[in-house]
Each structure stands twice: as structure tokens, then as C-alpha cells.
Nucleic acid binder design. Structure first.
Lengths: 184, 184
DNA sequence: CCATATATACTCACTCGGTGAGTATATATG
DNA sequence: CATATATACTCACCGAGTGAGTATATATGG
């Protein structure tokens, strides 16, 4: 009905996990990587990055061990666990957002990591996202149809969301050609 | 740079305040009104509504007093204070979001309450929103221009945002004709 | 006529999102 | 020699959001 829902698939979390798939790292470095590679896709403050990493650790998706350094402050070196790896690849192929914003954010992030770690599954990821968008469009259309005509503001909101989804469809079609994704 | 920022102008708060401008009410009723009138613009759970109202009270934007009822549980009847009224009308004319989502949400909400409480200021509200969008488009365009070409994912994200802003421009032009808003 | 659903009215405990400032040290720059 | 910048992380705080619980009254259906 709305967008303010928690999806449970917030992906700055998975993005951090995704960087750790490439090998061990630490908070500062992960935040740097994130910002340069995806800084215009998501925003992630440093303290928020550390907060997410702490959560991932308590959940058992990553493990930490302290490495003392001669001169600079000690690092907490982080490694992804088997469980974390499993969760990450599950998200990569299943995690789908429903609204305009999360499609842009999550889809791009998934595409980024798919290219890095599993380029063979790009067509699959692309297709399931596209299917999801089409089904959302369908749902919105019927919702709008059945909306009482006096609800002008609700209607305006839904209208714009519908138009945004169609825009995203075209934007994704563009991506298909850019990434040479074959139809499946 | 990103959208995840706190704007400080979160408007479910101001929407609740806006309903109280019409006269005193209580949590349950406000949530009902909100849901039927703006339920497809924003989503607001009942508990969240109460949480916001509590905050508004501690801030001094509304005042509460308990009214016992014969049979049903007691109500906390809420009234907007002079300060709250001031804050609300300031938001109505100044509160402007910068990204696609907040434009849709906040602009529609402002339009809704402007129609209810201050229809004469609609052209002003419309114009400042439109100006804001145009300036955002300008900023995005230069950002994209100066983005190093290897940053494909950042570029894709910014491209989509730009297209979304242009879409919103058209959607707003539609609204102008629907609401007979004169150019100023 | 009794069970169940729905409406009224609100509370609580919890997790997550997000910021801003602070701490401490090392190296580079003018 | 002072200052800025990079490294590396912590902390306190507030706001967003949910889900379930509490308590009572009326309407509805078999």
C-alpha cells in the first residue's frame, strides 16, 4: 500500500558483505570502497557503516579479529563467514525491491556485485527484477482503477508512482543493451 | 550527494499538525483521517502516529488533556498550540524536498493542506517547488557531466534520478492545469 | 443467544536508520 | 612549525517503524 515499509533487504548491508566476498578488510577501508564505487547510488556515513558491520558480526555473517599496528590505531580485520556468504548470494539472486527508489538502489547494487562475483547470473537477476516491475505496474493499475474518484491526492500519488515504474522499465531496457544482457 | 539524508522536514508529522489546524482531535481519529485522506501518499502505522504525537507534545506544538468517557477508554484530546500553528504554516510555505520521493510525498501533502487551510498560497507553493526541481536538475546535470566515465554504476544512478526529476516536472505541469494554478 | 468480528483508544518493547562529534595518531604540505 | 589530511574507530543520541498487547463496546451471523 505504501513505500515506507521495512523490506528487510536493506542493501547497504549486503553491499558491505559483497565487498568482503572479495577478501578480508576492515571498517575504514570498506566505507572508502563503498563511497567511491557506489557513493552516488547509496549514501552511507562512516558511523553507520560501523554500526552495520557490528550488526553483521552479532548475526554471525562476518567475524572480526583485532590486528595491532605499529603506529596507527589497531584494526578490526573482518572476514565473511560461510553463513554470510550464503546470505549474500541468496540476496543477490532473490532480493528484490518493489518501489522506485529501492529498485534503483538495490538493483544497481546487485548488478554491481553480480558483475564482480557472478556475472553468469546477470540475465537471471535482470529478468526477475523486470518481472517484479511488471507485476507492480499491474497491481498499481488495478489499484488506481478501483480508487474512488474523490480521492484526488491518493490518485495523484499513485499516478506518479505508476509513471515512475514505467520510466524505470525503459531505463532498465537501456541497461540491457549496455550490458549486453541476453533475453531469457 | 544522496537521498538518505534526514531533511528535518518529515511530513507525516506536519500532516498530523495540519489536521489539528481544523480543530481539536485525538490520536485514533487523526490516524483514521490520515489513512483515508493520504493513505496512498504516505503510510503511517497507528503506533507511529502516536509516537509522533507524543513528540509534538513534548516539543510544545500540541497540548493534550485527558477526557474520560462513560464507556470507552479515555481519550487524550489534542489541540494545536500557537507555536505549532506557526511551525505548520512555515512548513507549508517553506518545506521543500529535493529528491523524487520527498517531492511526491511532501508536495502532495502541502498541496492538500494548502487547499484546506490556505488556498490563496497554492501558486506560491507550486512555484517554489517547481523552482527547486529545476535547480536540482541543473545540479544533477553538472554532476553527471563531471563524473569520471569509469563510474558506470554511479552514472546509471544519477541518470535515473535525472530522468525521474524530469518526469516529475511533467507530472507537476499536469497538476497545474488540474488545479487551475495561475503562473506567477 | 452466544461466539466472533470489528471499532474505539492507546501502550510498550524492540530493532533499525542516521547523524555529529569526539578520540588518537601519523604523515604530508606550505 | 603549524595545520590540514588520512587512518581507524567509538559513543550518545534521536527518529523511523513494526508487531503485539490491553481493554471495552457494539454489531453481525449462525
Amino acid at each position: 500500500m505504501s513505500e515506507n515499509k521495512h523490506s528487510g533487504n536493506l542493501s547497504p548491508e549486503f553491499a558491505l558483505l559483497g565487498f568482503l566476498v572479495s577478501g578480508q578488510s576492515h571498517g575504514y577501508d570498506l566505507h572508502q570502497k563503498f563511497t567511491t564505487e557506489l557513493g552516488h547510488v547509496w549514501h552511507l556515513s562512516q558511523s553507520q557503516a560501523y554500526a552495520i558491520l557490528k550488526r553483521l558480526e552479532t548475526r554471525g555473517d562476518i567475524s572480526a579479529h583485532i590486528v595491532e599496528q605499529e603506529k596507527l590505531p589497531a584494526r578490526q580485520v573482518l572476514r565473511i563467514t560461510a553463513q554470510g556468504r550464503k546470505r549474500f548470494f541468496a540476496w543477490l539472486e532473490l532480493g528484490i525491491g518493489t518501489n522506485a527508489r529501492s529498485i534503483r538502489l538495490e538493483f544497481l547494487t546487485r548488478l554491481f556485485f553480480a558483475q564482480l562475483h557472478r556475472s553468469e547470473s546477470i540475465p537471471q537477476i535482470y529478468k526477475s527484477q523486470m518481472d517484479e516491475i511488471e507485476s507492480s505496474i499491474g497491481k498499481l493499475e488495478t489499484l488506481i482503477e478501483h480508487l474512488p474518484p474523490e480521492q484526488i491526492f491518493n490518485r495523484l500519488s499513485l499516478d506518479l508512482r505508476l509513471q515512475q515504474l514505467r520510466l524505470i522499465q525503459n531505463w532498465m531496457a537501456e541497461i540491457r543493451t549496455q550490458f549486453h544482457i541476453s533475453r531469457i
